[in-house]
Computed example of a mutant assay.
Amino acid sequence: MNEIVYQYWLLSNEDISYSKKVKLIDYFYDSYNLYTSQKSALLNSGLLDEKTIDKFLFNRSKYDLQKEYEKFTHTPFSFSTVEGKAFPEKLMNIYDTPYGFYYLGNLPDFSNCVSIVGARRCSAYGKKIAHELGRELGKAGFTVISGMARGVDSYGHKGCLEGGGNTVAVLGCGCDVIYPPENHLLYEEIAKNGAVLSEYQLGTNPVAMNFPRRNRIVSALSDIVIVVEAREKSGSLITADFALEQGKDIYVVPGRVGDSLSSGCNKLISQGAGVIWDINQFINEISDLCGKTPENIVVKKKKSMMDLEPELLQVYNYFDLYPKSLSTVLEESGMDYLQLLSQVLALERKGLLAEAFKNNYIKQG
């Protein structure tokens, strides 16, 4: 029988914990030997207790290898394990190496990968920066890795897709479970232009304990980890911790002192993380780290303000990359309200301002 059938059996096996599967392969050499092993050999491995072994052997005796694998081949999903040649080398030597994962789409070669992570409840500024970073990285030929969560993750994926790049989503639930549910279209787009993957069994619900664990895979598949916005205690900092353990470079988007969404990022800066102060400069810098030549790099030219009428340029300069209210600008500028509103709407039509929330605007240029 084909060895892939035994690999699928072990990957889908729920009697053995995720962390024990690779250890068992190290001991028994491959899934075929594990499948045909006797109780005495399993006990001698010292990896499983007798109760677990009895349950494992009982369920194994009822498992129809060929039938179960055949059922899986009629799904749109694929899988990769440490026993196969396609398994990413970046996952082989990390803490708690996954035995394998399911995926939908086409796996990249995982060279030149950058992860974008950050707050789910991010600010309008965080969304904008995550989207721009994703787009420019995609244009420059990088693969963007993230977790398809609400907020920064989603905007990083969307930006990469807009830039024509490949992106990979590492889920904290089964590969066939779309979470959050509003990301249904994004899930489909990622599968068409990259891959959605998960070490969890198909059908696994998104429970809180799964997400910190999956973060080690996000960082491991990446060469560089970017944190856009993060509170002092957040999942993004867990990803950063994994990245440090794995020897990856970490960059952060700095934020305002006292802003809770920036406290985690600013703390990482104090610990020596790189700072993204200009996206084009950052792309060029990491291209050197990843061995990409300047010819590979395509960067977006900044919008020119030279063609703006002086009145519009004056109003534009009152705003910044953080939401600013019309009432604040009224005080600063001394302008008439209707005159200011007219100029703001004109700048919005030109794509130079965007309304972050009611009567609060941010720069887009």
Rank of each mutant, 00 (worst) to 15 (best):
V5S: 06
Y6A: 06
L11N: 05
D15P: 04
S17G: 12
Y18S: 12
K23A: 14
Y27W: 15
D30I: 09
K39A: 08
N44K: 15
S45Y: 12
T52Y: 06
T52F: 06
D54V: 05
K55D: 11
K55R: 15
F58D: 13
R60Y: 03
Y69L: 09
F72N: 09
H74T: 14
S80Y: 04
T81P: 03
K90T: 13
N93R: 13
Y95H: 14
D96N: 15
G100C: 05
Y103A: 01
L107N: 07
F110W: 04
N112W: 08
I116F: 07
K128S: 13
I129S: 00
E132K: 10
L133E: 00
R135Y: 12
M148C: 05
G156E: 05
K158N: 03
C160R: 02
C160E: 00
L161G: 03
T167K: 03
A169L: 04
L186E: 03
N193M: 07
L197S: 01
E199D: 08
N205Y: 11
P206Y: 10
M209D: 12
S222F: 06
S222Q: 05
I226K: 01
S236I: 04
S236W: 00
D241A: 12
Q246E: 14
G247N: 09
I250A: 01
P254R: 02
S263F: 09
S263Q: 15
G264S: 09
C265I: 01
K267L: 13
L268H: 01
S270N: 14
Q271N: 14
D278E: 10
N280V: 11
N280F: 09
E285C: 06
V298A: 11
K300V: 15
K303H: 12
S304W: 05
D307M: 14
E311C: 07
E311D: 15
L312G: 02
L313D: 12
Y316K: 05
F319V: 07
T328Y: 12
L340D: 04
L340T: 05
V344R: 00
L347D: 03
K350T: 07
L352C: 02
I362T: 08
I362W: 02
